[in-house]
Amino acid sequence: MYKVIEIAERVSAVANLVKIDGRVSWVPPDVTGFEPYYTYLVESDETLLVIDPGMVVHWPAVHAAIEERLAGRRLMVFNTRSELECIASLGRLMDSFDNVQTITSCPLNPFDLMHRKQPQRMHPPSAYVGFGESLQDFGFAHLHSLRPVIKMLGTSWLYDSRGKVLFSTDCFGGDFLATPDEPLVRTTLEGAPDKAQLRATMLAKFDWLENADTELLRRFWDGLFDQIDVEVIAPTHGRIQSGKLVASQVLNDYSDALLGPVGKSAERVTVERPDPIN
């Protein structure tokens, strides 16, 4: 059973749970419990924007949630990555609705990444939004595409400056549910995963981090997080982190876990941000 939960003003998550059983590559092997997966919906008066339609296993739920909420508005889809976790259902979505505007910051055009069975459904060409640019042409001036600090394939993060939500896609998803009835959103640090688990989860996807130049990564990290205020961390999978204190502590914990703690003598390097969000 899926749930739709509000995580910020006019931002909701269609959440589905998967029991952890060792068959998923981005979950470390010793983790047990349940992993939530999300498709995010951002709404305006004219448009319903779907962030990552997700995997086919969740398509019936995502489809139902879109049908329920669309209410005659324009449907748009932004994919944060060209990976199957984000786009396996895209062909099904395009086969189910007309006039869907696809938008991405990834180098690959979404139309090059799907099989469609209903070619009679007409859609406009995909639109490209560069890093640092907003989605204002689509009615979402508060949504900004960001160059991710850590990535594997073509990836962008999204930042909602209105709700201070960071859509972090395959990063920061290292918080799992022990039982299916636990909350999908963390609002307190009590019981938060330790740094070892955060690191293990990131390395399960980004195994190159083990050999990475952390000094360079820290520059990228500080270059971004010095410029945005994050109050909600909204990954593709793993528990959502909500609240100013929770989000900032969790980001610090990830930073320590991946880049090592900043020592007293360590110099904070300010780099010119190549893609300012404003």
Partner: peptide
């Protein structure tokens, strides 16, 4: 192969 995740991508 290493078919982890594929049952979620394409459950059918």
């Amino acid at each position: 192969g290493d078919i982890r995740n594929y049952h979620l991508y394409y459950p059918h």
